[in-house]
């Protein structure tokens, strides 16, 4: 395979694993209308929990399950801070994220747990032996595809249920949801738990795939999630829920491909990427307002006085 093609394929497989994180961010950011800063911490929590479970000899899928529960717990803390203690959602997420830094270090016992090299004998999903002779990248691609597809399907089904609809409506109009008899404290709490569960699953898969868990692996995850969502919305504007979820996954894939190509073909280094992503997301979030201003500006220019004033 050419180096260009292989960076494409690697971008796609990375994108699929990170897409699960972006789908979690989609739940909080788009459905609940909360910018949930917990994500940077809970992504690492997912990686940390997965790593120690695997080190303890548990099956790598079981490790992901435990990571899911840990992510839910993280979301629950943020949910309690904001719904029961009335701390603004943004600040609640930041507080949980800061607290999780300590907890993640305590879980791992050190800043980095390698899952390859000296620990290469432990079971890893990405060492999966397929009946045909598949490369590591191909295995990553298949695992990412399975997880992302299953999660999108489950999300699509869940948000079509009574509880799912109440969660969606909470981000839209909480007063209406209460008037219709649902407890918006619970819907918000539940949405935060679900979102962070997905984020932790993604963290666990990424840790397995890259072969280590690291205390800094979640830094900037929220921004990457937002970038994926925005790219997805540009790709699939005004479509139904199904396509919006797919859009988030495609957004994540495109984000990864762009990053891989930048690293390969530009002088930018991996530590430049956070600034790059932050700038791109800031510009994208500015865009709707910018377009509105341009429209207003045009309207003002075409509003020519028909007769003199004072």
């Amino acid at each position: 395979m050419s180096s260009f093609a292989s960076s494409l394929v690697s971008g796609v497989s990375q994108g699929l694993l990170w897409a699960i994180m972006a789908l979690g961010v989609y739940i909080t950011f788009r459905l609940l209308d909360i910018a949930d800063m917990t994500v940077d911490g809970s992504f690492t929590t997912g990686g940390a929990v997965t790593a120690i479970c695997m080190m303890a000899g548990y099956h790598p899928l079981f490790a992901i399950l435990v990571a899911t529960l840990a992510g839910m717990a993280a979301g629950m803390i943020t949910g309690i801070l904001t719904t029961r203690m009335k701390i603004p959602a943004l600040l609640s997420g930041i507080l949980t994220q800061i607290g999780l830094y300590t907890i993640n270090l305590r879980i791992m016992g050190k800043a980095n747990i390698p899952l390859t090299g000296i620990n290469s004998q432990i079971e890893n999903l990405f060492n999966w032996q397929l009946p045909f002779n598949a490369s590591r990248t191909a295995v990553a691609l298949i695992i990412g595809l399975i997880f992302t597809a299953v999660i999108i399907a489950l999300m699509y089904l869940f948000f079509g249920t009574e509880i799912g609809a109440a969660i969606r409506a909470t981000g839209n109009n909480p007063a209406m949801v209460r008037a219709l008899g649902a407890n918006t404290k619970n819907t918000t709490l539940f949405g935060l738990m679900l979102g962070n569960a997905l984020v932790a699953i993604s963290g666990g898969l990424v840790a397995q795939q890259q072969g280590y868990s690291d205390i800094g692996m979640g830094t900037g995850a929220i921004v990457i999630g937002l970038a994926s969502i925005i790219i997805g919305e540009v790709l699939f504007p005004k479509t139904n829920f199904w396509f919006r979820l797919m859009g988030v996954a495609f957004g994540s894939i495109i984000y990864r491909i762009v990053i891989t190509l930048i690293l390969r073909y530009s002088p930018l280094k991996s530590y430049d990427l956070k600034l790059f992503t932050a700038v791109v997301v800031a510009l994208a979030l500015w865009l709707p307002y910018l377009l509105q201003q341009i429209r207003e500006h045009k309207a003002r220019r075409s509003n020519i006085p028909s007769r003199g004033g004072v």
Partner: peptide, 20 residues
């Protein structure tokens, strides 16, 4: 129709039944 469906659940416990 989603709004109407949610209104029809006022007064009962919401579960994992389809909203629509």
């Amino acid at each position: 129709v989603e709004n109407l469906a949610m209104a029809s659940q006022r007064g009962s416990l919401r579960g994992l039944r389809w909203n629509l």
